[in-house]
Amino acid sequence: MNDPTIAALFIFVLASFAGFEVINKVPPTLHTPLMSGANAISGIAVLGAIVIAGDREPSITMILGAIAIVLATINVVGGFLVTDRMLQMFKKKEVKA
């Protein structure tokens, strides 16, 4: 096992703990938006896809990367938009005179 992988493991474990702390107290009303928002963030794989699709020479790797970009962007854009669509429906009771 090499050093970069261990360093990455540190980042992963610490980010997981931070994630648990941040998300732990979300009220049930927001569970669906939280999930679809988190879902959009999982489309972060698009970065990896860009890195492998960015090669100078055409290759199978590049093609796989290009497909991955399309799939991940659907996830990202669709996820954020649909979350916003849901959240704009959440309203408090309008004050009636």
């Binding site: 990455a8 992963f12 994630g19």
Partner: peptide, 21 residues
Amino acid sequence: AGFVVGNSMLIIAGALVGASG
């Protein structure tokens, strides 16, 4: 995937989603 391409951003965001799920 972040471990694969050595990208810390992927690792962090992925861990965040993993925790929420």
